[in-house]
Design a protein around this nucleic acid. Structure first.
Lengths: 199, 199
DNA sequence: TATTGATGAACGAACGATTGTTCATTATAT
DNA sequence: ATATAATGAACAATCGTTCGTTCATCAATA
């Protein structure tokens, strides 16, 4: 790659990083293009050499943000025992969604997606991917006879994700990590929903 | 009450209604004071005779929005069998949070509360009220011997609310009512979390 | 009851600040 | 020399808010 091209890519990444910083600190709508340019040590006009406008910048960040979910999906694919796989996923995903930066940014992106079809679609794609791999894991558990057979898989998975994300967002917004009791209750709920034996 | 005072109150309500309409339609940040004034058939200047500014208007709406939760809390207080009471609450609350208008407005208010302490506090107060009455109901169920004794009450209640609100918001944002399967799965989860008998 | 002065609701032009975006210009790397 | 990265002044639009003013309604007086 050229020196020119490499520098350009670095600039792009620099600007995106600056935008994320600003969005987390002030919110998407409260952040102006000038704020981002200043944060990135880039001139106002030059920013438009790298991004067609504010909307494109927001879309790019929403994309990257969603892309991080892909790792969770991948980690689930190759896992061993379905019950353990789900258990590990819950812990890891909760840890992720309960970080303050993620919570603040996620809420803003959801709010943004309400009036921005492109972002809403992106958001749906990423979530659907999670739902799919979790569903497949439960399906595996069912066929292996280690999970309840009468589960509405998709609805259960979505409910599970709602519970994790709800706990995560509330924790992230208050700045406290999820309590041991809350994590225990969450795992307990999953156990009761999926497991064969009641105790 | 005076003719003057009555008219003034009607004007206030008119403006608030117009603001809600605009906020739902365009979002809080995309709505200008002029939009609200136009929607209410009120002059720009006159709006400031009734509200000190946009922030005050937002705060007022957040207050009213949260106040609607109070009815759910009251309905729970006087109810008979704890299991049935919870069951009814879930149905009613889900119906409420899954309305499109509520979903759109709620997300915006949450996003707003991230950077507005007053609104965040208001939000917490309303939610805590729900958590309290639900906790009391479960406590009642435990002492009556119709619910599991080893429940982390607060964490379970919050997880329950997360599941309801998550399902509600997703339904509201996509414009579809929660499916029968989803509602069934939700009630099933609650049954498994609270009930004595595993089946 | 009729007249007066006080009160505040209603109005929209105007203000200064800020918004996202464009563009002519300069600097720099190939 | 040529292409393009980088700059910041400038633009039109919009923002929330303030302002002086008009006018309907009220209480007090005659």
């Amino acid at each position: 790659m050229n020196t020119r091209e490499k520098a350009k890519e670095e600039r792009r990444a620099l600007i995106i990083g600056a935008a994320v910083t600003c969005f987390i600190r002030k919110g998407i709508h409260q952040t102006g293009i000038r704020d981002i340019a200043r944060q990135a040590n880039v001139s106002l006009g030059n920013l438009y050499n790298h991004f067609s406008g504010k909307d494109a910048l927001i879309a790019e960040i929403a994309l990257l943000d969603g892309l991080r979910l892909e790792q969770f999906a991948k980690d689930l694919d190759v896992s061993e025992d379905p019950n353990i796989a789900i258990h590990k996923f819950v812990d890891a995903y909760l840890e992720y969604v309960s970080s303050a930066e993620n919570a603040v940014l996620t809420i803003d992106i959801i709010a943004e997606s309400m009036r921005n079809h492109a972002i809403a679609e992106q958001f749906d794609v990423n979530r659907q991917r999670l739902v799919d791999v979790l569903s497949a894991t439960i399906e595996r558990g069912k066929s292996q006879g280690v999970m309840r057979s009468k589960i509405h898989i998709v609805e259960t998975v979505e409910q599970l994700l709602d519970a994790i994300e709800g706990l995560g967002l509330r924790s992230g917004l208050t700045g406290r990590k999820p309590s041991k009791k809350a994590r225990k209750t969450l795992q307990d709920m999953i156990f009761r929903m999926l497991s064969l034996s009641p105790e």
